[in-house]
Computed example of a mutant assay.
Amino acid sequence: MSRNSGIEVLRYTAFSADPEGGNPAGVVLDASGLDDAAMLAVAAELGYSESAFLTGRSGPGEAGAREYTIRYFSPKAEVPFCGHATVATALALAERDGPGDLVFRTPAGTVPVTVTREGAELRATLTSVEPDVLDIAPDDLAEALAALDWPAADLDPALPPRIAFAGARHLVLAAATRERLADLSYDFARLEALMHRLDLTTLQLVWRQAPDVFHVRNPFPVGGVVEDPATGAAAAAFGAYLRDRSLVPGTAVLTLHQGEDMGRPGTLTVELRADDARVRVSGTGARIED
């Protein structure tokens, strides 16, 4: 726990049971008295890719789920949805109040989350808003590849570039080799400018290891950080992309490995259901002690 001008700020990592892995997030369980500038200041001081702020609570919702209004800030701006900060917040609430069902009212829409206990660990599963998959213009794709310094020949033709949405927009680019994915050194300002123009939150860079196993990386210059270590919103969008392109069965469980190249390994589980367009993303987490 840390305190910022009297504000109680918890720190959790998401998508790893090891505090040194996964993606860290700040969590403020009572941000009802904070304005936008104060929330942004907390996020900037922490320096994590995102922090989450519970700004209100309503009565028990459907089936007794606890309902909260939540907002997310990167060090530079508010974002509409953040998967890892959602998981971190759900785990913080579960440690305080016990596992169970939650509903988060996010700027992107309603996101149910279920927290269960698996042995000594807690696991949170979020259900995305309705996803969408869009084409990307050839000129915009060429600019993205130029900013990354990725030759078009290094892309995997079996996974064509698309923009995917499941609460936030992400450009999906698939590398043909693990070596291409590992070699990430990009033009920060150039990529940031393109992402602002296309309203992208991150790029979802992927390499397919097996039919249901992927390695992923997420440049995040619009948030003020070079790379996001584990990205739940992008994982949900990627699941929607794979289903939209018929690259996986309609019902599938996928494993995404992220953060290995940053020294913060994490694992995201993505579940697709044939009878539901929404995407489920789950993972463990851990408290980061001061």
Rank of each mutant, 00 (worst) to 15 (best):
T89E: 04
M195W: 07
E78M: 14
D30I: 11
L173H: 01
P157N: 11
P24L: 10
D36H: 14
R71L: 06
F188Y: 11
A237K: 07
V79M: 03
E118S: 14
P151E: 10
H215C: 05
S16A: 14
G6M: 06
P24I: 06
A182T: 05
A37K: 06
N4C: 11
V213M: 12
A41D: 13
L134V: 11
S2T: 13
A286T: 09
A189E: 15
V129L: 06
S5R: 14
T69F: 06
L247S: 09
P160R: 13
A176F: 00
G56T: 10
R71N: 05
R105N: 15
S185Y: 09
P60G: 12
T202H: 05
A164F: 08
L198V: 08
A43W: 02
P151M: 10
G285D: 06
F81H: 05
V216C: 15
E179D: 15
A189Y: 02
P265Q: 04
A230F: 00
T86G: 03
G263W: 01
R243H: 08
E130L: 12
D132T: 10
A146Q: 02
R96S: 11
R197D: 15
L242S: 06
L29S: 05
D199H: 12
T125K: 10
D261C: 01
S51N: 09
L46I: 10
L205P: 05
A164M: 08
D228R: 00
A193W: 04
L254N: 01
A277K: 07
F214S: 06
T201F: 08
S49E: 11
D135I: 08
D35S: 09
G263R: 07
T55C: 09
G224D: 13
V87N: 01
D212N: 12
V270D: 04
R117H: 06
G266R: 01
V225E: 02
L200A: 07
A274L: 11
D132F: 00
P19R: 08
A147H: 09
